[in-house]
Amino acid sequence: MATGEPLIVLDGVNKWFGPLHVLDDVSLSVGKGEVVVVIGPSGSGKSTLCRTINRLEPITSGTITFDGQPLPAEGKALAKLRSEVGMVFQSFNLFAHKTILENVTLGPVKVRKEKASVARERGLALLDRVGIANQADKFPAQLSGGQQQRAAIARALAMQPKAMLFDEPTSALDPEMVGEVLDVMTSLAGEGMTMVVVTHEMGFARHAANRVIFMADGQLVEDAPPSQFFANPRSERARDFLSKILTH
C-alpha cells in the first residue's frame, strides 16, 4: 500500500479556459501505491485535474511533478513521461482500426521498442487478466462497453506504468457492466498500483480508496480517508453533494 513517498505532486495549479477558472490553486500529493478517488459535481474540474497530470491539458500556472521530475513541455521528454502514466478514458478511445490485441501491443512495440513476440505474450496475459482473452482478435466495435473499457485498461497496463489515471471510467457504461470494470480496478488497487480515479462510484471510493478528494468550482474542498469523508464530511458543499447522491 501507500509508502508515503510522493509520486505525483501538484502545487498551486491554476487553469483557465478563457474566462473560466477550472482549477483554482489546487495542491495535491499522491504517494506511491496510493489510490486517490476524486469526486464532485460536474463542472467542478475533476476531469481537468486528472488530465493535467499527463499534460493532456496544459496548466496556466503552478507546478506538477511526476516521480521527482517537473512535467516537460511538448516533445520527446513529454512522450516518455506519458508512456509511464497509464490513462483510461470515459469513452474508452480504443483504436477503432486495430484489433484488441493490436491496441494492447501498439505502445510497447512502437514506444518501448519491444519485440513483437514479447509484447504479444504480455498483451495476451493482460487480456486474460481482465477477462477478455477470447476477444483478442476482434475489433473494438464488436465488443460491449464493459469489455472495451477492460481492453483499454489492459492497453494502459501494457506500458507497465508507474501510475494510472482513470477519467470517469464507468460513466459511459450500461449499469450491468459497471461491476466488471470496477472489479478490475479494485484488484489493481489491491496490487499496489498508484491510481487517481475520477468517478461517481461511491462504493468503489469507500472500499478501494486510501483518500477521497472532493472538488467543487475548481477548488479542492476536502481531502480525507473515505470512512471519515462519507461519515462526517466537514464542508457544507460536500454534505450537500453527498445528500443528493446517497439518498437514492
Binding site: N54, L56, K76, A79, K80, L81, R82, S83, E84, V85, G86, M87, F89, S91, N93, L94, F95, A96, H97, L106, G107, K110, V111, A152, R155, A156, M159
Partner: peptide, 26 residues
Amino acid sequence: PAGQAEAARSLGLTFGQNLRYVVLPQ
C-alpha cells in the same frame, strides 16, 4: 474522433507515430 489521438498521446506516441499508426489510417 479527438479521443483517438488523445489515447495515442497518452501512451507516449510521438506526433509522427500518432499520425502514422493511429490518425492517418483512419
